[in-house]
C-alpha cells in the first residue's frame, strides 16, 4: 500500500497555490496596459530628470516636507529649473494639475495608492485637492 492518491492530491494543491499569479491574471481578465500619464502641456522639464523623479519623487517630497515644516527653508536648488519653491501645491501641482491622471495612475498600478496607512498618497490628508478636478 502507498499513499499515492493523497500525495498527488496534495501536490496539485501546492502547484495551484504556487502558480497563483498566473491563473489569477487569467481569471481576472488580461490586465490593461501600463498607465500612461497626462503630462503638462506647457512644461517639458520637471525639477529633476524624469528617470530620477520616477524612482525618487517620494524622497524629494519627504525632504521638502521636512525642510519646510521643520526647518522653515522654502527654496530648492533644482537641477533643471534653477531655484524653485518647495511647495506641493504651488510647484508640483502647478504643472501636474490633475492627481487622477498623474499621481494616482501609477500609484494604483503599483498598489501604493490605497487609502490605508501604507498607501503612498498621504499628501491629500493635509493638502487641499487643487481645483480643476
Amino acid at each position: 500500500m502507498n499513499d499515492r492518491p493523497t500525495i498527488i492530491g496534495g501536490l496539485v494543491i501546492a502547484l495551484v497555490a504556487l502558480t497563483f499569479p498566473i491563473w489569477y491574471s487569467v481569471g481576472a481578465g488580461r490586465p490593461g496596459p501600463p498607465p500612461e500619464l497626462e503630462l503638462p502641456a506647457d512644461e517639458s522639464q520637471c525639477v529633476e530628470d524624469a528617470a530620477s523623479m520616477r524612482a525618487n519623487h517620494m524622497d524629494l517630497l519627504d525632504r521638502w516636507r521636512d525642510a519646510v515644516v521643520r526647518e522653515g527653508r522654502r527654496t530648492y536648488r533644482s537641477t533643471n529649473l534653477g531655484e524653485v519653491e518647495m511647495s506641493l501645491t504651488k510647484t508640483c501641482l502647478g504643472c501636474h494639475r490633475n492627481r487622477e491622471t498623474f499621481c494616482l495612475r501609477c500609484h494604483e498600478y503599483a498598489n501604493v495608492g490605497g487609502e490605508g496607512p501604507a498607501g503612498g498618497v498621504r499628501c491629500w490628508a493635509c493638502h487641499l485637492e487643487p481645483e480643476g478636478n
Binding site: P34, A51, R54, A55, N56, M58, A110
Partner: peptide, 10 residues
C-alpha cells in the same frame, strides 16, 4: 537605491 517601480511591475 530606488528604481522605477512601474517599470518593474510591467
Amino acid at each position: 537605491i530606488k528604481t522605477d517601480i512601474v517599470a518593474v511591475k510591467e
